[in-house]
């Protein structure tokens, strides 16, 4: 347990380095100023619709996944590139514990970055509508997104030198384009898993509901289902990452 906390804390400390954090906070925090610019003259319902549209259309679909991708691929990828992996690997610690700690750290760091942006837009929207529960759904989405992205991109960062680029291609092509046209892959799409959790908690206007149902396709909104799918993904990720740490040569000659 001690090793788990030590590794989680050190990986989080590195992932939340000043330069990266500032860059990503600019990214995830960009929703709030957009809301404030578009807010004047809107009714409460219109503001709720706008908040949901921007949060889903910009945050959940692009900004949050990209922020989580950058953080998660760096969790072990950066250790490998900067040649610090031996400090972690040459310790009397089970590879499964290392894998679990790193995936946890990546998820927590991603959540911190996303949630800062969520809080900014939450306050901006609530100040106009007076509905202070408006950001709960986005917080839930950020939490599910953090875990799902860490599960997918931590092992990817370990095996691929350009994992962030590959991950970006995956997000754009698989999740946004193919997921839209091929119904068969919608159930396993992280974007739709996150959106189904969001939709289960969010207060939506009829306009929002139509848009969300169109994106979800065959996926039913449901927080429980989203959490279950994400948990399975996380377990598989820890197993794969642990196996990679145990079996693969992760340092160069």
């Amino acid at each position: 347990m001690r090793a788990f906390f030590l590794i989680t804390r050190s990986v989080m400390g590195r992932l939340l380095g000043l330069r990266r954090s500032i860059g990503l906070l600019v990214l995830t925090g960009s929703i709030a100023p957009i809301l404030l610019v578009l807010a004047p003259g809107r009714s409460d319902d219109q503001m709720t619709t706008l908040y949901n549209d921007i949060t889903v259309g910009l945050g959940v679909s692009i900004l949050f996944p990209v922020a989580a991708l950058i953080v998660s691929t760096a969790a072990l990828g950066e250790e490998r590139k900067s040649h610090t992996l031996p400090f972690l690997l040459l310790k009397p610690v089970s590879r499964w514990v290392i894998a679990l700690a790193v995936v946890t750290a990546a998820a927590l760091a991603s959540f911190v970055i996303m949630q800062a942006g969520v809080l900014a837009s939450w306050i901006a929207a609530a100040a106009v509508t007076g509905d202070w529960s408006i950001g709960v759904s986005t917080t839930v989405a950020a939490a599910v997104q953090s875990v799902a992205s860490a599960a997918l991109f931590v092992p990817l960062g370990l095996v691929l030198g350009r994992a962030a680029l590959v991950g970006l291609g995956y997000l754009m092509i698989w999740e946004l384009i193919l997921g839209d046209v091929i119904e068969g892959i919608q159930a396993s799409s992280i974007y739709r898993i996150v959106l189904s959790a969001w939709a289960d908690v969010a207060t939506m206007t009829p306009d929002n509901l139509d848009t969300v149902n169109e994106v979800l396709g065959r996926v039913e909104p449901g927080l429980g289902g989203a959490v279950a799918k994400t948990a399975v993904l996380a377990i598989i990720s820890v197993a794969v990452t642990g196996w990679l740490l145990r079996r693969r040569d992760l340092v160069s000659e």
Binding site: R2, L6, G17, H83, T84, F87, K91, P92
Partner: peptide, 29 residues
């Protein structure tokens, strides 16, 4: 590894840590 110490050739260290924290972290692990 409880009984092994290793100093890699690469110059890299954990730049987000102080020397004391790095050494304490290694000791604790």
């Amino acid at each position: 590894y409880r009984h092994v110490g290793f100093v890699p050739e690469d110059e890299a260290v954990y730049n987000h840590m102080s020397a004391r924290r790095f050494v304490e972290w290694s000791a604790a692990l």
